[in-house]
Design a protein around this nucleic acid. Structure first.
Lengths: 266, 266
DNA sequence: TCTGCTATCTTTACGCCGTAAAGAGTTCGA
DNA sequence: TCGAACTCTTTACGGCGTAAAGATAGCAGA
């Protein structure tokens, strides 16, 4: 369920995204007709509430309308369609991301904090990971967030060409790692089967159906027996623990790679 | 449109995935009834054909049935449901991935080749990127592909704990970068608007609606003017060029990071 | 005050989706 | 020849986004 941004009426969409900024001021002449009971802001809020609570798959025009005590079609007075609503929701929640990172302890500490905040942001709004990145929404908060990261990264004194790709690599990595967590949670919620139960059942079936597993995949067995994340006894499920560990170690690897690029003067 | 793996009847699903391997031999006693005109293999092939041609969104039971000259419901005789069909499709195409990487020029060259092949694989079967990774399919070819990568990575002599996360980081990165390309292509195909046209229209609107853009986002402007990938005159669209460049440079960064980990003896 | 225009919101409808349920038709052993 | 087991079709249900049409409400000008 990847949702594409920037379909539909581009001009109207951009105007909505940047609304109250450039074109603020009086509502475009209204005159007869009943007073509007809804507003774009209310609809976007309702959309975010639905998506946060039940996921992107549950975000339907009917569901959003219902939450506002209206029918689905009532929303079309305010918003051109579902695609534009998702764009607005996306840019709205991006406003939560901090911008005030301190660079005095060095870029590495700052980028680490940024990555941690971004990670938590994705876990808070898992549906954001389903908004396609290919043709970005181009809303004010997306730009604000990017500008924030760029401020930290330009402190590395890397070239713009390299930086541009480093930004992409960081986002791909963090989004992917976060996605593992959110999808695991979603799977647990929608099937009622926890990670542990699922894995137990599957690996049991595997050893039964594929008796020569260890001979066919010796390195996988080695990885599984040697490398598992320790269970700290707390309630974090298996796959989430793994994903978090991947996030930590993967980030270290990428930051090490950035340092290597710096030392090579790229 | 993320599709979840491993829902539904787990036992039947696993049996189908590992079919013809352990439990090969005679079809489970059949006796009366018309001879089956279809087969699991034919259905999986048809599914792959539909998904390759028109994307995951176009993969419906009706579409697969139609391609085989049957109704949607006919498929349910062979396959428990759509989710299991996707699992089978996924494991089937994974068989295309090579396994015979040469380690004599060193792990770095081998992993680079592996990454390149994997990248091309994703571009060949974009729908694979929509199969959820959280609860893996656990089919033979997924294991085979993982075992292949592990063979290359164990040559680094890193610990299993680190390796495990490096694998995750590599996959997140490659999948993310490939996703940008496939989504960009999909957007172009479904809207009829090329990357260039889209960007032209959007950036034009931006400068019009947000006249103080350069003051608000100076680093973004700098990145855009300094760091763009040169247009080699060939027909590769803008966003694809960027994504490919992100893949190349990002991979270098990650591999540099792995080398740093090696030198630190992790 | 009444009329008429316009904006908001509802109702209905269309063609998609996955799949449950029921039934038609086919092929074999007994 | 009969009946069981199997394949495959038909029909139906509740979901989706949204087009089209109609009901209702509120204000400007008469």
């Amino acid at each position: 369920m990847v949702v594409f941004a920037g379909q539909g009426d581009a001009r109207r969409s951009m105007a909505l995204l940047w609304r109250a900024e450039g074109t603020a001021g009086a509502r475009t002449r209204r005159w007869p007709g009943p007073k509007p009971a809804l507003s774009v802001a209310a609809i976007v809020d309702a959309g975010v509430a639905v998506a946060d609570a039940d996921g992107m798959a549950a975000l339907s025009m009917r569901a959003v309308g219902e939450r506002l005590g209206r029918t689905a079609m009532a929303l079309y007075t305010y918003v051109p369609g579902k695609s534009e609503l998702v764009d607005l929701m996306y840019d709205q929640v991006l406003a939560e991301l901090p911008t005030d990172y301190d660079l005095t302890p060095g870029w590495r500490a700052a980028v680490t904090s940024w990555a941690e905040d971004t990670w938590e942001f994705y876990l808070r709004h898992p549906w954001v990971l389903q908004v396609s990145q290919a043709r970005p929404v181009l809303g004010p908060n997306e730009y604000r967030a990017l500008e924030t990261l760029l401020r930290l990264l330009y402190a590395t004194e890397l070239s713009s060409a390299v930086l541009r790709r480093v930004v992409g690599a960081l986002f791909h990595f963090i989004r992917g790692a976060a996605q593992t967590v959110t999808e695991s949670r979603q799977a647990a919620a929608s099937t009622g089967v926890s990670d542990e139960e699922w894995w137990q059942a599957r690996s049991g079936m595997l050893t039964e159906m594929v008796p020569d597993f260890a001979e066919r995949f010796p390195l996988l067995v080695r990885l599984e027996t040697e490398g598992a994340a320790p269970d700290p006894g707390d309630s974090v499920p298996y796959l989430e623990r793994e994903a978090r560990s991947t996030f930590d170690i993967g980030l270290t690897v990428i930051l090490d790679g950035i340092e290597a690029a710096i030392h090579q003067g790229r």
